[in-house]
């Protein structure tokens, strides 16, 4: 026994090293799982506060650009509003048409400011200044002016961490708008302007310039959120699927404000699917 203790004491540095490394590995694994560790990330108040201060300084230098973008967005929103009103008038004229307000108003948006963002790592995250108090929950979609940005990973009272589309672990279901074929987008970790579109079978002919939008199967995003445009396609003799480069609609380096999408019907849809398929993993 004494010799064992002596042995442990002799190599205490090595054993501490081993224990600390095991602890780290355990944390890395934990954090990789969806909705993993909830506290040790930028959604905690101290970290978000510090990041927010840094971002404030950065934003100050970008004010002109942010203003331009906001006014541009205002313009397009006003346009959409106008179209919507026209449509509603048209609908109310057709008295007998079905007009289900639950469906029309099924999405609600929470405006948020980006307090921390990165694009150069393999696993990029975005921190925003809205959290559980404002109704943000893990799993919600995040968009910017109808362009896909990511999904909420963890929330604290006033902040949330979002898994950016620029994260090698993140996959989203999308479709080619022109042909209607489904595929999956996943970032390859290199260029933040492009994302890979996978699992488009051989017989489909994707063209350069085709729009990629989120599909109706997507568990996170509402359908028809703009993801990007096809820039390059490759298909060798032996490949089962096309290799497609999609240029992202959202410039992630310039993200300043985003909207979190709350889907009122998501719970209903999920619980219905649960009954049939069982609990999601």
């Amino acid at each position: 026994m004494q010799r064992l203790l002596h042995f442990l004491y002799e190599y205490r540095a090595f054993f501490t090293f081993l224990i600390l490394q095991l602890l780290c590995v355990w944390m890395i694994v934990q954090n990789n799982q969806y909705q993993g560790a909830q506290f040790f990330n930028t959604s905690n108040r101290v970290a978000a506060g510090v990041s927010g201060t840094t971002q404030d300084v950065k934003n100050y230098f970008a004010l002109r650009r942010i203003n331009d973008e906001l006014s541009e967005e205002n313009k397009s929103l006003r346009q959409k509003l106008e179209q919507r009103e026209q449509a509603i008038q048209y609908l109310t004229l057709k008295r007998d048409s079905v007009f289900d307000t639950d469906i029309v108003e099924r999405f609600e948006f929470v405006n948020a400011k980006v307090v921390n963002n990165s694009t150069a790592r393999f696993k990029n995250f975005i921190t925003i200044n809205r959290g559980a108090e404002e109704g943000v929950e893990p799993g919600m979609a995040v968009i910017n002016d109808n362009r896909a940005v990511g999904k909420v990973k963890a929330v604290s009272d006033h902040y949330s961490v979002i898994i950016s589309l620029l994260n090698i672990d993140e996959q989203s279901s999308v479709l080619i708008k022109r042909t209607g074929h489904f595929g999956t987008v996943q970032w390859d970790g290199t260029d933040p302007r492009f994302i890979d579109l996978k699992y488009i079978p051989r017989h489909v002919v994707p063209l350069v310039g085709d729009s990629i939008v989120t599909s109706d199967f997507n568990a996170v995003f509402p359908p028809n959120v703009f993801v990007g445009i096809i820039r390059q396609t490759r298909l060798s003799e032996s490949d089962q699927f096309h290799e497609i480069d999609v240029e992202l609609a959202q410039d992630f380096g310039k993200l300043a404000y985003v909207q979190v999408v709350k889907s009122r019907l998501k719970r209903e849809k999920d619980s219905l699917e649960n009954i049939i398929i069982g609990e999601p993993k």
């Binding site: 590995v25 355990w26 890395i28 954090n31 040790f40 510090v50 990041s51 921390n116 696993k123 995250f125």
Partner: peptide, 22 residues
């Protein structure tokens, strides 16, 4: 760990820095 908190990469920076420290 402190740096990891800001990088949202729990454990990765800690692991590499412990290696250096050892």
């Amino acid at each position: 760990l402190f740096v990891d908190m800001f990088y949202n990469s729990l454990g990765i920076h800690a692991s590499s820095l412990v290696m250096v420290a050892y």
